[in-house]
Simulated assay, not measured.
Amino acid sequence: MTRPEEFIEGQFIVKVIASQIRKGNVVEVDDQLYAVLKAESFFPGKGTPTTQIDMRRLSDGVKTSQRYKTTEQVERAFIETKDHNYLYQDGESYAFMNMENYEQVTVPADVIGDQAVYLQENMTTQISLYNGVPVGIELPTRVTLEVTETEPVTKGQTASSSYKPAVLSNGLRVNVPPHIGVGTRIVVLTEDNSYVERAKD
Protein backbone atom coordinates (compact mmCIF):
# COMPACT_ATOMS: atom_id res chain seq x y z
CA MET A 1 0.00 0.00 0.00
CA THR A 2 1.27 3.49 -0.77
CA ARG A 3 1.75 5.86 2.11
CA PRO A 4 -0.68 8.80 1.94
CA GLU A 5 2.10 11.40 1.59
CA GLU A 6 3.52 9.63 -1.48
CA PHE A 7 0.08 9.73 -2.98
CA ILE A 8 -0.14 13.44 -2.14
CA GLU A 9 3.27 14.14 -3.68
CA GLY A 10 2.24 12.42 -6.89
CA GLN A 11 -1.13 14.14 -7.11
CA PHE A 12 -0.35 17.71 -6.21
CA ILE A 13 2.63 18.71 -8.33
CA VAL A 14 1.55 21.51 -10.67
CA LYS A 15 3.50 23.22 -13.43
CA VAL A 16 3.77 27.02 -13.17
CA ILE A 17 6.00 29.53 -14.93
CA ALA A 18 9.14 30.54 -13.03
CA SER A 19 8.06 34.17 -12.53
CA GLN A 20 5.07 32.96 -10.46
CA ILE A 21 7.27 31.25 -7.85
CA ARG A 22 7.30 33.00 -4.46
CA LYS A 23 9.20 32.67 -1.18
CA GLY A 24 7.68 29.79 0.83
CA ASN A 25 6.66 27.75 -2.23
CA VAL A 26 7.96 24.20 -2.58
CA VAL A 27 9.37 23.20 -5.96
CA GLU A 28 10.53 19.87 -7.35
CA VAL A 29 13.89 19.84 -9.16
CA ASP A 30 15.47 16.56 -10.33
CA ASP A 31 13.08 14.52 -8.12
CA GLN A 32 14.09 16.51 -5.03
CA LEU A 33 11.88 18.92 -3.10
CA TYR A 34 13.14 22.41 -2.26
CA ALA A 35 11.69 25.22 -0.12
CA VAL A 36 11.99 28.58 -1.88
CA LEU A 37 13.88 31.12 0.27
CA LYS A 38 13.88 33.93 -2.31
CA ALA A 39 12.62 34.40 -5.85
CA GLU A 40 13.56 37.41 -7.94
CA SER A 41 12.76 38.19 -11.59
CA PHE A 42 15.07 40.28 -13.77
CA PHE A 43 13.88 42.11 -16.88
CA PRO A 44 16.93 43.46 -18.74
CA GLY A 45 16.40 46.02 -21.51
CA LYS A 46 17.86 43.54 -23.98
CA GLY A 47 18.07 39.80 -23.64
CA THR A 48 15.83 37.25 -21.98
CA PRO A 49 13.97 37.99 -18.70
CA THR A 50 15.07 35.51 -16.02
CA THR A 51 13.99 34.42 -12.55
CA GLN A 52 16.57 33.52 -9.91
CA ILE A 53 15.34 31.12 -7.21
CA ASP A 54 17.29 30.58 -3.99
CA MET A 55 16.12 27.38 -2.28
CA ARG A 56 16.86 24.83 0.43
CA ARG A 57 16.56 21.08 -0.12
CA LEU A 58 14.01 19.63 2.31
CA SER A 59 15.83 16.31 2.72
CA ASP A 60 19.13 17.68 4.03
CA GLY A 61 18.93 21.49 4.24
CA VAL A 62 21.51 22.10 1.46
CA LYS A 63 21.01 25.52 -0.16
CA THR A 64 21.25 26.13 -3.89
CA SER A 65 20.32 28.72 -6.54
CA GLN A 66 18.79 28.14 -9.96
CA ARG A 67 18.17 30.62 -12.77
CA TYR A 68 15.27 30.09 -15.18
CA LYS A 69 13.75 31.98 -18.06
CA THR A 70 10.71 33.73 -16.54
CA THR A 71 8.36 31.77 -18.83
CA GLU A 72 10.07 28.40 -18.21
CA GLN A 73 7.91 25.79 -16.48
CA VAL A 74 8.76 24.84 -12.91
CA GLU A 75 7.13 22.01 -10.94
CA ARG A 76 5.54 23.35 -7.78
CA ALA A 77 4.36 21.04 -5.01
CA PHE A 78 1.03 21.56 -3.27
CA ILE A 79 1.39 22.66 0.35
CA GLU A 80 -1.09 23.51 3.06
CA THR A 81 -1.09 26.88 4.80
CA LYS A 82 -2.43 27.30 8.33
CA ASP A 83 -2.73 30.13 10.85
CA HIS A 84 -0.20 29.95 13.70
CA ASN A 85 0.46 32.28 16.62
CA TYR A 86 4.05 33.23 17.36
CA LEU A 87 5.20 32.13 20.84
CA TYR A 88 8.95 32.64 21.35
CA GLN A 89 12.45 32.33 19.90
CA ASP A 90 14.47 29.27 20.85
CA GLY A 91 18.08 29.63 19.68
CA GLU A 92 18.18 29.29 15.89
CA SER A 93 14.47 28.51 15.58
CA TYR A 94 11.10 30.01 16.43
CA ALA A 95 8.11 28.37 18.13
CA PHE A 96 4.55 28.83 16.87
CA MET A 97 1.19 27.34 17.88
CA ASN A 98 -1.36 25.92 15.44
CA MET A 99 -4.62 27.74 16.24
CA GLU A 100 -6.80 24.77 15.32
CA ASN A 101 -5.25 21.97 17.38
CA TYR A 102 -2.84 23.90 19.67
CA GLU A 103 0.13 21.85 18.49
CA GLN A 104 3.49 23.61 18.54
CA VAL A 105 5.58 23.94 15.38
CA THR A 106 9.27 24.89 15.30
CA VAL A 107 10.36 26.98 12.30
CA PRO A 108 14.10 27.26 11.43
CA ALA A 109 15.53 30.79 11.24
CA ASP A 110 16.39 30.57 7.52
CA VAL A 111 12.75 29.85 6.63
CA ILE A 112 11.75 33.14 8.28
CA GLY A 113 14.79 35.07 7.08
CA ASP A 114 14.95 38.84 7.58
CA GLN A 115 11.28 38.95 8.59
CA ALA A 116 12.15 37.55 12.04
CA VAL A 117 12.70 41.10 13.25
CA TYR A 118 8.94 41.70 12.98
CA LEU A 119 7.80 38.75 15.08
CA GLN A 120 5.77 39.84 18.11
CA GLU A 121 4.26 37.63 20.79
CA ASN A 122 0.81 36.29 19.77
CA MET A 123 1.20 37.65 16.21
CA THR A 124 -0.89 35.59 13.78
CA THR A 125 1.17 34.30 10.85
CA GLN A 126 0.46 31.86 8.04
CA ILE A 127 2.87 28.93 7.99
CA SER A 128 3.18 26.74 4.90
CA LEU A 129 3.64 23.07 5.76
CA TYR A 130 4.74 20.24 3.50
CA ASN A 131 4.03 16.85 5.09
CA GLY A 132 4.10 18.62 8.45
CA VAL A 133 7.46 20.33 7.79
CA PRO A 134 7.39 24.17 7.88
CA VAL A 135 8.72 25.49 4.56
CA GLY A 136 7.50 29.08 4.47
CA ILE A 137 5.90 31.80 6.55
CA GLU A 138 3.77 34.81 5.76
CA LEU A 139 3.65 37.67 8.25
CA PRO A 140 0.95 40.33 8.37
CA THR A 141 1.63 42.87 5.59
CA ARG A 142 1.73 45.74 8.10
CA VAL A 143 2.97 46.03 11.67
CA THR A 144 2.89 48.90 14.16
CA LEU A 145 6.16 49.82 15.89
CA GLU A 146 7.41 52.70 18.01
CA VAL A 147 10.20 55.07 16.97
CA THR A 148 12.97 54.88 19.61
CA GLU A 149 15.64 57.04 17.92
CA THR A 150 15.51 59.74 15.26
CA GLU A 151 16.56 63.32 14.67
CA PRO A 152 14.41 65.90 16.48
CA VAL A 153 11.42 67.34 14.64
CA THR A 154 12.39 70.63 13.02
CA LYS A 155 9.69 73.31 12.90
CA GLY A 156 8.83 74.59 9.47
CA GLN A 157 9.77 71.39 7.64
CA THR A 158 7.01 70.16 5.38
CA ALA A 159 5.95 66.51 5.37
CA SER A 160 7.08 66.22 1.77
CA SER A 161 10.73 67.16 2.36
CA SER A 162 13.34 64.43 2.51
CA TYR A 163 12.91 61.48 4.86
CA LYS A 164 15.25 60.96 7.83
CA PRO A 165 16.59 57.72 9.36
CA ALA A 166 14.91 56.28 12.46
CA VAL A 167 15.39 53.23 14.71
CA LEU A 168 12.26 51.32 15.74
CA SER A 169 11.45 49.39 18.92
CA ASN A 170 12.46 46.10 17.24
CA GLY A 171 15.90 47.48 16.25
CA LEU A 172 14.95 47.97 12.60
CA ARG A 173 16.23 51.04 10.76
CA VAL A 174 13.75 52.77 8.44
CA ASN A 175 13.29 56.17 6.84
CA VAL A 176 10.46 58.33 8.19
CA PRO A 177 9.04 61.76 7.30
CA PRO A 178 10.57 64.74 9.17
CA HIS A 179 7.47 65.30 11.33
CA ILE A 180 7.81 61.87 13.02
CA GLY A 181 9.50 62.06 16.44
CA VAL A 182 10.70 59.65 19.14
CA GLY A 183 7.81 57.83 20.83
CA THR A 184 5.55 58.00 17.75
CA ARG A 185 3.98 54.70 16.73
CA ILE A 186 4.17 54.10 12.98
CA VAL A 187 2.90 51.51 10.51
CA VAL A 188 5.59 49.71 8.47
CA LEU A 189 5.28 47.32 5.50
CA THR A 190 6.95 44.01 6.40
CA GLU A 191 7.77 43.24 2.76
CA ASP A 192 10.22 46.11 2.21
CA ASN A 193 10.56 47.86 5.63
CA SER A 194 8.94 51.02 4.28
CA TYR A 195 7.03 53.65 6.28
CA VAL A 196 3.28 53.73 5.58
CA GLU A 197 1.71 56.18 8.03
CA ARG A 198 1.50 57.27 11.64
CA ALA A 199 -0.42 54.65 13.64
CA LYS A 200 -4.02 55.59 14.41
CA ASP A 201 -4.16 53.85 17.83
Rank of each mutant, 00 (worst) to 15 (best):
M1L: 05
M1S: 09
M1N: 15
T2Y: 05
T2R: 01
R3Q: 09
R3P: 10
P4S: 06
P4V: 12
P4D: 08
P4K: 02
E5A: 09
F7A: 14
F7C: 01
E9R: 10
E9L: 09
G10L: 04
I13A: 02
I13L: 15
V14W: 02
K15L: 06
V16Q: 10
V16M: 03
A18Q: 01
Q20M: 01
I21D: 01
K23M: 06
K23H: 09
G24S: 08
V26C: 02
V29R: 08
D30A: 07
Q32M: 14
Q32Y: 11
L33V: 06
Y34D: 00
Y34P: 01
K38F: 10
K38S: 06
A39G: 04
A39P: 00
E40N: 02
S41A: 11
S41Q: 14
F42G: 10
T48R: 13
T48K: 14
P49F: 11
P49W: 07
T51D: 05
T51K: 05
D54I: 10
M55K: 09
R56D: 07
R57C: 02
R57N: 13
R57S: 09
L58Y: 04
S59Q: 05
S59K: 12
D60K: 15
D60V: 11
V62A: 09
T64D: 12
S65G: 07
Q66K: 13
T70R: 08
T71C: 02
T71Y: 05
V74W: 03
I79W: 11
I79K: 06
I79A: 05
E80S: 15
N85A: 10
Y86N: 03
Y88R: 09
Y88D: 12
D90P: 06
E92Y: 14
F96C: 07
F96K: 00
M97I: 14
N98S: 08
N101P: 11
E103P: 06
Q104N: 12
Q104D: 15
V107R: 04
P108E: 12
P108C: 02
I112W: 00
G113L: 00
D114A: 04
Q115M: 02
A116R: 13
A116G: 05
A116F: 09
Q120A: 14
T124N: 01
Q126M: 14
Q126F: 04
S128P: 11
Y130D: 06
N131F: 14
N131Q: 15
V133K: 05
V133P: 02
I137A: 01
V143P: 06
L145W: 13
L145I: 14
E146N: 15
V147A: 07
T148F: 03
T148W: 15
E149S: 15
E151M: 05
K155H: 07
S162R: 10
S162C: 03
K164V: 13
K164Y: 11
A166W: 05
A166M: 10
S169W: 11
N170M: 05
G171H: 03
I180D: 00
I180A: 04
G181V: 06
G181Q: 00
V182E: 04
T184H: 02
R185G: 10
I186N: 02
I186Q: 02
V187P: 03
V187A: 04
V188K: 01
V188L: 08
L189R: 12
T190V: 11
T190Y: 11
Y195F: 15
V196K: 15
R198K: 12
D201G: 08
